[in-house]
C-alpha cells in the first residue's frame, strides 16, 4: 500500500502573550490509501492540532510549526502555495469538525454550505451544484426539500450530517474526522458512525478518526495511535493494541472502561491531570501520573519500540506485569 499522508517529526507550538504551549512534540504517522487510523487521547493531547496542521490551517501568528513536515502524496503541505492549498482543502482532504453547532455558518443555508464546495472544486454551476447537493443530503438522510433551510432549523445530529455531506461532496482521498460525535447524544452517535463506516467503505476513502472514545476506534479503524501530551505513546493495529496494551497510559485508558461480560472488576482511574502543555515534564511526559514510573522515566524521553509486526510503544518500563511486579 502506498502512503497517502506522512507526518514526519511534527512539532507544533502555540505562542501567545501568556507563554508557549507545546501542543505536538515530534509525531510520526502514516496513513495508507484506504486505511482508517484512529487517534486517541485526552482533551489537550494535540489531536486537533494534528488535524489542523494537516490542512495547514493553524491559527495565524499563534500556531507555529517548530519542526518536521506533513507530506500529502509526497508533497509538503507547508510548502504549498495558496492555490495548491485551496485545491487540496475540501477536495482531496476534507474535514468533519468537532462541534456541529458552531461549524456551520448561521446566516447561510445548509444547501449553500454544501454546494459552495462543489462550485469551488468541480466548477459546477449554481444549478448543477444544487442538484448534486440535494443528492448528498439524501445520502446522509436529510430530505432534499430542506436545502434552503438554515442551520438553526436543524438538530445537532442533522447539522453534523450536513457537515459530513459537505466533507464528502468531492470524494476526498482523505477524510479527517475530528471528534465527529462528541457533541452528539449516544443514539445519534451510533447513526453518524454507521453512516461514516458505510460511506468510507463505499468510496474507499482513507480516514483519520480523532476521538477520545475507544469504542469508536474499535468500531471503525484498523490502526490506532494513542497520544499523550503531544507524543504518540503507543501505535499499532486496533486488535493488537486493545487486546495487548503495552504503555501504562493505554492500559489506564482501557482499564477505565466497564466490561459487559465476565467477572466484574473495579475500574481503574488514571490519577492526576493532563500534562500542562506550557510546562511539560521532563523525560516521559506521562511519568508524573504513572504508577510504574522508574528513575529513567523522569530524565529520558522513551522512543517507540517495536513490539511485534504491527505494534509499537514508547515506555521504559513495559515489561512489568499487571500487578506491578517484575
Amino acid at each position: 500500500m502506498a502512503s497517502l499522508l506522512e507526518i514526519k517529526d511534527l512539532a507544533v507550538a502555540y505562542k501567545t502573550g501568556h507563554g508557549t504551549s507545546h501542543a505536538v512534540n515530534g509525531i510520526n504517522l502514516t496513513i495508507n490509501n484506504g486505511e482508517a487510523l484512529g487517534l486517541v487521547g485526552e482533551t489537550g493531547a494535540g489531536k486537533t492540532t494534528i488535524a489542523l496542521s494537516t490542512l495547514n490551517l493553524l491559527p495565524k501568528k499563534v500556531g507555529h510549526i517548530e519542526n518536521g513536515d506533513i507530506l500529502f502524496k509526497g508533497k509538503s503541505v507547508f510548502q504549498m502555495n495558496k492555490k495548491e492549498l485551496a485545491d487540496m482543502r475540501g477536495n482531496k482532504i476534507s474535514m468533519i469538525f468537532q462541534n456541529p453547532l458552531t461549524s456551520l455558518n448561521p446566516v447561510f443555508t445548509i444547501g449553500e454550505q454544501i454546494s459552495m464546495v462543489l462550485r469551488k472544486h468541480k466548477n459546477l454551476s449554481k444549478k448543477e451544484a444544487r442538484m448534486e447537493s440535494e443528492e448528498l443530503l439524501k445520502m446522509v438522510g436529510i430530505a432534499k426539500s430542506r436545502y434552503d433551510d438554515y442551520p438553526n432549523q436543524f438538530s445537532g445530529g442533522m447539522r453534523q450530517r450536513v457537515g459530513i455531506a459537505a466533507a464528502l461532496a468531492c470524494n476526498p482521498e482523505l477524510l479527517i474526522a475530528d471528534e465527529p460525535t462528541t457533541a452528539l447524544d449516544v443514539t445519534i452517535q451510533a447513526q453518524i458512525l454507521e453512516l461514516m463506516k458505510k460511506l468510507q467503505h463505499e468510496n474507499s476513502t482513507s480516514l483519520l478518526m480523532i476521538t477520545h472514545n475507544l469504542g469508536i476506534i474499535s468500531e471503525i479503524c484498523e490502526k490506532v495511535a494513542v497520544m499523550y501530551a503531544g507524543c504518540i505513546v503507543e501505535y499499532g493495529t486496533v486488535k493488537e493494541v486493545f487486546s495487548n496494551p503495552k504503555h501504562w497510559y493505554t492500559k489506564g485508558l482501557l482499564g477505565a472502561i466497564p466490561k459487559l461480560e465476565g467477572e466484574r472488576e473495579r475500574l481503574t482511574a488514571i490519577h492526576g491531570n493532563v500534562a500542562n502543555a506550557q510546562d511539560l515534564p521532563s523525560g516521559c511526559k506521562f511519568h508524573p501520573r504513572c504508577d510504574q514510573c522508574i528513575d529513567t522515566c523522569k530524565s529520558e524521553v522513551p522512543s517507540l519500540i517495536q513490539i511485534s509486526d504491527d505494534h509499537y510503544a514508547a515506555c521504559w518500563n513495559m515489561e512489568v506485569n499487571a500487578n506491578g511486579r517484575k
Binding site: L85, A86, R89, G90, T102, V117
Partner: peptide
C-alpha cells in the same frame, strides 16, 4: 475566529 470560518477555509474557499 469562529469555527464556521475555519471550516470554510477547510473547504478550500479563497481568503
Amino acid at each position: 475566529q469562529e469555527d464556521y470560518i475555519v471550516s470554510t477555509y477547510a473547504k478550500g474557499i479563497g481568503q
